[in-house]
């Protein structure tokens, strides 16, 4: 997977998270760019189901051999699901960040218009 892989159908944050909105539920993960920068992921801390999050909250962390990065809530709402597979297979967050490595799902309580589209995010990482 290339570090500059930016799927068209997702929206993004400048903090290298992706958001997929399906009706009123948003799925959140880290981007391929972030995964590449981190290196092999060894541990993921996630919010708890039922937590209420607001934009910018630190809701978890992704730890690699090299470093630890915080996960910020990209949208507001109630956490309705977390990816339990990451407990035993944290590496999925880095090896399949857009698929099996998703992090958590939020029932939206607020908008998503602040998120970047694929073109804007691609431009953002090109400048980084």
């Amino acid at each position: 997977m290339a570090a500059n892989d930016v799927p068209e159908n997702l929206t993004y944050t400048a903090e290298h998270e992706w958001v997929a909105v399906d009706d009123d539920v948003a799925t959140v993960g880290i981007t391929a760019y972030a995964a590449d920068a981190l290196g092999d992921v060894v541990y993921v801390a996630l919010p708890a189901v039922g937590d209420t999050v607001t934009i910018g909250d630190v809701v978890g962390e992704v730890e690699s051999h090299k470093s630890v990065s915080e996960i910020f809530a990209p949208i507001a709402g109630e956490v309705v699901a977390v990816n339990d597979r990451l407990e035993a297979e944290a590496e999925l967050a880095g090896s399949a960040p857009y698929e099996d490595g998703w992090l958590f799902r939020v029932r939206l309580d607020g908008g998503t218009e602040h998120l970047l589209d694929a073109a804007a995010y691609a431009a953002h990482i090109a400048d980084a």
């Binding site: 290298h16 998270e17 760019y33 972030a34 992704v62 470093s67 910020f72």
Partner: peptide
């Protein structure tokens, strides 16, 4: 996330 890419 704030990956540190400082090689440039």
């Amino acid at each position: 996330m704030s990956p540190d890419q400082s090689a440039d």
